[in-house]
Design a protein around this nucleic acid. Sequence first.
DNA 1: TGTTAGCACTCGTCTTAGTGGAGTGCTAAC
DNA 2: GTTAGCACTCCACTAAGACGAGTGCTAACA
Lengths: 343, 343
Amino acid sequence: MQLDERKWKILKAIIKTYLETGEPVGSRTISKYADLNLSSATIRNEMSDLEDLGYILQPHTSAGRIPSDKGYRLYVDQMMEEKDKEVTEIKEIMIQKQDKMDLILKEAAKVLAANTNYATMITTPQYRRTKLKFIQLSLVSEEQILVVVVAEGNVIKNKILRIVHNLDNETILKLNILLNSSLDGLTIEEINLSTIARLKVQAGIHSEIVNSVLDAVAEAIQMEEDIEIYTSGATNFFKYPELSDSEKASELISTFEEKKQLAALVNERNERQETGIQVYIGNETPVQTMKDCSVVTATYDLGDGMQGTIGIVGPKRMDYDKVISTLKTLMVQLDHIYHRNES
Amino acid sequence: MQLDERKWKILKAIIKTYLETGEPVGSRTISKYADLNLSSATIRNEMSDLEDLGYILQPHTSAGRIPSDKGYRLYVDQMMEEKDKEVTEIKEIMIQKQDKMDLILKEAAKVLAANTNYATMITTPQYRRTKLKFIQLSLVSEEQILVVVVAEGNVIKNKILRIVHNLDNETILKLNILLNSSLDGLTIEEINLSTIARLKVQAGIHSEIVNSVLDAVAEAIQMEEDIEIYTSGATNFFKYPELSDSEKASELISTFEEKKQLAALVNERNERQETGIQVYIGNETPVQTMKDCSVVTATYDLGDGMQGTIGIVGPKRMDYDKVISTLKTLMVQLDHIYHRNES
DNA sequence: TGTTAGCACTCGTCTTAGTGGAGTGCTAAC
DNA sequence: GTTAGCACTCCACTAAGACGAGTGCTAACA
């Protein structure tokens, strides 16, 4: 059996109604739908078919129907196609004077949560294949030197090193020049053993410092350790009865608090490359605790190979339509903000 | 009427039992207590007195008694006196190789939450009256300079400035020397208008850069904006039936997620200077949403005027004994860790 | 052949009444 | 001053019943 025009309309009506009410929807409710003009009995027949096809299901006999994961999936896929061009507007995010991306991201998570009434997460961008831009050593006190590493995209890392033998400013200057001239513009993969060996020879008696500096460099460019995940609106789960019983809510909120588990969502790289938006419904999610939820993730791209992920977690009866539009808008905005700060 | 020895013993027994079970405790339960040897009837009489005195109360007729805020308060005050010298041991916090205080604090919040089964929060240290140690300007690209400000306690701030007219390295060097010689060792209060005016005169045509740099300095030393609060174990609220109904739990967890409201706890500076530990019971708390909870805060002090706050939020029937011991131990540990990293 | 009205049936939810038990306060005796 | 005993209170739990939303099926209609 195929999904004809009418069945699709009915399915859509069921899903939409369920999204609003959160309760199983019956045939009479759907029969009142304007552009159908069918009696409840007819609807019942069609619903029975839709159930056989696996798009909807009954929580128990004599209850209405609710969409199955398969039903949601169809709905979402269909919708993504329709929405693909259109990008709606949401209010400009309030950006405080701080030009720090971190704060903006935190704010974005908050705004998103407030707007959608779902739980949200956002990661700091990951600097894949980022190049070194600048290294600076300075003598802070007699036995401490400060290492500052700037990578492409103005990612800055500091490290304080303890040193054994005294260094004078002139030596530091020389080391600075040496380091910058040897390493400038290289990616982490390009700094290999031979580069390092050459560096050490040139550094002479200060080769141990080179080691420490390289550690700092590695730390600065290495993303793994440094990826932060900001979350907001975890308590929104309480707004949806199907998720708000103690046990489920506790699990979900814990997951959000822990953050580590959320990394799984980030790392699942988007198969849906075209739009960068990925929807996981129910069991499709890589995070087990979210099996009763739907998760929508979007990848934002700031150029220079910097990418981050935004995610929204809510009940399966999520307003997919709005969520996807909002995410798209946000991605565009992040892009703007970033490039405005840049120039 | 005064609290005689026997009443005090009974009150303690009631509170202890209630701390464990979380349910109103009746006279028979207490009568079984070893070192009392009284019948339930006698206990009932005493309990009636204790109720008149306001130390315990009945949720409803024919239920057992639970401690009132006043009862908890007496219990806690008494206990703090007893525990004042003793500092117990808990397992060493796992410190990863990172020598960053931030990570340690996050970890500390987690360990504390896991250990106590309450929700915990910890603030990054606030750098009051911190002195400037070092300023470094460097040319990163043609129109960007990097400002690095190091304050006492090795707090490092970075800022990227955009510049209009080209600067050569020599000018930068001069500015560096100028800035460091004028500002080194000063606190934020000591950098006043006359200092700034003098600086600008000396900087000549580059006085606008001085402005930007001073902004960065202010930002680096200013604590307000920069105080981070890490939280952990917010879902522990679910473990205590009296806090776990949707509404209360949601409010509490929101408060923890928001973090802003938590600042109120931090800012209430400890009246109890001697130990640095402060206990708020029920309505005593400055945060309204926690009126059904108890809050224990401790101030840790890393020297150099750097202080932070650790807090634990749980049900009123909190294991005050353990919490206070644990907090004390943690404070000592933070101190150790910090000074080990320092030297 | 597709659509519809009608009806019996199912099953979850809400309400109500009833029961059991934990705990108290009071009184009288030791 | 302490204790045993008893009547009383009130919550928590359970079972039974009423209600209603929704279904599936059948028969009639266009």
